[in-house]
Amino acid sequence: MSDQEAKPSTEDLGDKKEGEYIKLKVIGQDSSEIHFKVKMTTHLKKLKESYCQRQGVPMNSLRFLFEGQRIADNHTPKELGMEEEDVIEVYQEQTGGHSTV
């Protein structure tokens, strides 16, 4: 019986991991920090939209990076291997420009 009891508790931990929340720091170019608590399985588009709304800027005017890689709207913290207190960097999107060649 103890084996049966242990097995469901392991499964519960697996389920808990799926719905687990982590805190992420979003740091802007001006070094301002906003902290977000997100589920591991939530699409990061929600975090990006919330950040842009707080900053009063359109979402397409900023780019969000985690460990140097651009974050897509459909990425989740779990897919990117994010952990508690990880940092997302935000930069002004640069458009235009010309070749110097």
Rank of each mutant, 00 (worst) to 15 (best):
R54D: 04
E93F: 15
N74P: 05
K16L: 10
T95F: 05
C52V: 05
D15E: 12
E89A: 07
E20M: 12
G97T: 05
S99D: 08
T10C: 10
D12W: 00
R63E: 07
E33S: 07
D86S: 14
G81L: 12
H98V: 09
I88T: 02
I27D: 03
A72G: 14
S32H: 05
A72K: 01
D73P: 01
L13E: 08
K48W: 03
K45T: 05
T76A: 02
L47Y: 04
Q92S: 13
S61H: 06
I34M: 09
T10N: 14
G97C: 03
E83Q: 06
G97Q: 00
D86V: 04
N60V: 06
V26E: 02
L44C: 04
I34A: 04
D15G: 12
T42C: 08
G14S: 08
I88K: 02
E85W: 15
L62Q: 15
F66H: 13
V101C: 07
K45D: 09
V90R: 01
D30I: 01
T10D: 05
K45G: 15
H43I: 10
F66Q: 02
K37Q: 13
K17H: 10
L80T: 00
E18A: 11
F36A: 04
A72F: 09
T95D: 00
H98W: 08
T95G: 09
K48C: 00
F66L: 03
Y21P: 11
L24R: 02
S31V: 01
E11C: 08
K7C: 06
V101D: 06
G28W: 07
Q92G: 11
S9W: 08
G28R: 11
K16S: 12
R70W: 10
G68Q: 12
Q92M: 14
S61W: 07
K78Y: 15
Q69K: 12
I71Y: 01
M59H: 15
Y21A: 07
H43T: 10
V101I: 12
Y21G: 07
S9L: 11
G81S: 15
I34H: 05
V26S: 14
E49Y: 05
H98D: 08
E79P: 00
K16H: 14
S99V: 09
I88P: 03
P58H: 01
L24A: 03
C52I: 00
Y91L: 08
S50P: 04
T10A: 12
S2D: 14
S9Q: 11
G97K: 04
M82F: 02
G19N: 12
K23E: 10
L62K: 06
V101Q: 07
G14T: 07
R63Y: 09
R54I: 06
G96K: 01
L13C: 07
I71F: 00
E11R: 10
K25P: 04
V87D: 07
E5P: 14
D12S: 13
Y21E: 06
P8I: 06
K46F: 08
E20R: 14
T100V: 09
D12G: 13
P77C: 13
S31H: 00
G28A: 15
G56P: 00
S99I: 09
D86E: 10
K37E: 03
P58K: 12
P58M: 00
K46M: 05
S50M: 13
D73L: 02
N74G: 14
L13G: 09
R54H: 02
G68A: 00
D73I: 01
E20F: 12
Q53E: 15
D15L: 10
L47M: 08
D86N: 14
D12P: 15
G96E: 01
V38C: 06
T76L: 01
E83P: 00
D3Q: 09
E5N: 09
M40T: 13
Q55Y: 14
D12L: 10
P77Q: 03
G19Q: 10
L44G: 02
E93Q: 11
D12C: 11
F36I: 04
M40G: 10
E89T: 13
D3G: 11
V26L: 15
T10K: 13
L24D: 02
Q53I: 00
K16Y: 10
Q69A: 14
D73H: 05
Q4D: 04
M82Y: 03
E20D: 11
V26H: 00
I71T: 03
N74F: 13
T95E: 03
S32K: 15
S99T: 11
F66C: 04
T100R: 10
L62H: 11
Y21Q: 14
V38W: 01
R63T: 06
S99W: 08
A6Y: 05
G56Y: 04
A72E: 03
N60W: 08
V57K: 10
G96R: 03
S2Q: 12
T42W: 01
L80C: 04
H75I: 07
M59P: 11
K17I: 08
E89I: 13
A6P: 12
K17N: 12
P58C: 01
R54T: 04
K23S: 11
M1R: 08
